[in-house]
């Protein structure tokens, strides 16, 4: 699991004032995290790289507008989520057949059940809207609390809880063939 940790505020302040070297350090700190999060949301490494690049360049470009460097983390995640939405829309428009995210070797047993689960979960996740995927990944993978996700997405916290609930229900339902209608619900 990825944990959200703060970027050095002094580096952010320097980058905000046009220091490219400081921004390079900030970007190096964020790039791996952003790539991991966007890859999980978009399920495609090329799209994830594009989204990460788009977000980091947007951070550089718009950093002078950020008044409080202490709010950098939430602000930068917001730009990443926007980039993921943009890439998600582009993917739907131009490339309906996304490649399957190649799985690394799982650490636990690789029984037939596990493989079936992975396929079912992969399929169910792809059926989710980007809104639902985003809250699942930010909360359960990036370990960001719901209150913070509400700030990042600029939605009420109730909406975050609701999306989390429906997305999890859809994912769990995917493990049970009899519960397919619930999976479809969260994709609306």
């Amino acid at each position: 699991m990825l944990r959200m940790r703060g970027v050095d505020t002094e580096l952010v302040r320097r980058a905000k004032h046009g220091d490219r070297e400081a921004f390079g350090l900030v970007a190096a700190d964020l790039a791996t995290r952003f790539l991991a999060v966007s890859r999980r949301i978009l399920r495609d490494i090329d799209l994830a790289e594009d989204a990460t690049q788009q977000a980091l360049v947007a951070i550089w470009r718009d950093l002078p507008h950020l008044r409080d460097p202490a709010r950098f983390d939430a602000w930068s995640y917001r730009l990443l989520v926007r980039a993921c939405y943009a890439e998600g829309r582009r993917a739907r428009q131009w490339s309906p057949n996304l490649r399957i995210l190649p799985a690394d070797e799982p650490s636990e047993s690789r029984g037939l059940d596990a493989i079936i689960h992975r396929d079912q979960l992969e399929t169910a996740f792809r059926r989710l809207s980007v809104d639902h995927r985003t809250v699942l990944v930010l909360h359960h993978y990036a370990d960001i609390p719901a209150e913070r996700i509400a700030q990042i997405l600029d939605v009420p916290i109730g909406t975050v809880h609701s999306r989390l609930h429906h997305a999890m229900r859809a994912m769990r339902a995917a493990l049970d063939a009899d519960a397919r209608p619930a999976a479809a619900e969260a994709t609306r």
Binding site: L35, L101, V137, H140, Y141
Partner: peptide
């Protein structure tokens, strides 16, 4: 499944 490590 969500938390599976991949190496980006």
């Amino acid at each position: 499944w969500l938390r599976e490590e991949t190496h980006e």
